[in-house]
Design a protein around this nucleic acid. Sequence first.
DNA 1: TCTTTTGTACTGACCAGTCAGTTCAAGAGA
DNA 2: TCTCTTGAACTGACTGGTCAGTACAAAAGA
Lengths: 188, 188
Amino acid sequence: MSRQDTRAKVFTAAVELIAEQGYAATTVDAIAERAGVAKGTVFYNFGSKEGLFSALLDHSIERLAGALAAADTGESGVAALDSVVLGQLRFFEEHGPFARVLLSEMWRTAWQEAVARLRESALGVYAGVLRRAAASGEIRADLDVETAATALFGMVLTVAIERRALYPERPIEQTHQTLVELLNGRIR
Amino acid sequence: MSRQDTRAKVFTAAVELIAEQGYAATTVDAIAERAGVAKGTVFYNFGSKEGLFSALLDHSIERLAGALAAADTGESGVAALDSVVLGQLRFFEEHGPFARVLLSEMWRTAWQEAVARLRESALGVYAGVLRRAAASGEIRADLDVETAATALFGMVLTVAIERRALYPERPIEQTHQTLVELLNGRIR
DNA sequence: TCTTTTGTACTGACCAGTCAGTTCAAGAGA
DNA sequence: TCTCTTGAACTGACTGGTCAGTACAAAAGA
């Protein structure tokens, strides 16, 4: 078994347990046990509990940013926004435990540099889409795209977690449809 | 000093520390020290660390629900929605640490009954506003108001936390304006 | 050979919860 | 007025358990 395989197994076990119990309440013993690995192996690979979590955040944020960037169709219209929202819903559907970890730990000062990277990459995708839509005149040109990007990301993250927790059998497309209708705004 | 005063001091210390470090990482010793109270007093008043947190959640959720209900103007139109959004922003401006605590602990299974109460009361205000707007034809009648209510609540909560963390000097009205513009939707 | 993993045993710091004792204000009795 | 009692609120040293991290010898892989 390669070192990469070991790290992947530990990541999976860690994100699941931390999603359930939180970072501080999750012990390295429990992570090692669920990963089917000796405790020493965790320290050999990541140095410390904090090192493990930091690596986990980096790894997952990179994948999230990649998924959002891939979902961005590049259109200058708001269709691209719907697509990115769907991409985020799909990503958190596949990586459900990470959604809870991210929501819980996102604003903790201990992981600020990881969050800074999240802002640049993942939130940057939303900001880019909004900027293009503003440039093409489809939304107000004076919109604060940074705040709006955070609003959209937080909205989708919250809904993705609720869906997994309360309505796991509901198709993502239905949840997506609700969000799009909400954002399509008021009938005038 | 009355028992109520003591409980209030402990609440304030606890919510601040838990916002910074999370529930599990916050020790009762630290809470007692910041509250200027002996450790035994915390256990005398709340029975256990979990009892303290549970009481804190109940107390704060009740106040949040009251603030949202008070912000609901009762109008059947979407103006009421803007008003509730502003009410939520204002509440979390005044109770900033609680916003972080709520976001982090909201989906932990340990506090599910408190969260159930949150859904009934606070999210219920949003759902009610949306239902009225749907009935009056201002938004689509087939909108899933429960999911939309969660989406709105999560959106505002996320933005409120970001504002406090990154742009504390920015007036709330400006943030509110951005959210309203985002929800007013696309220019067609 | 060099890296990685295992499993067991250990340490020292930390922490929730306990409990015997203190403080004090409000009566009660004389 | 003075003394004594009561009970609620509070205190902080102490205990028993937990957990991150270490140590290390042996084995497995590559």
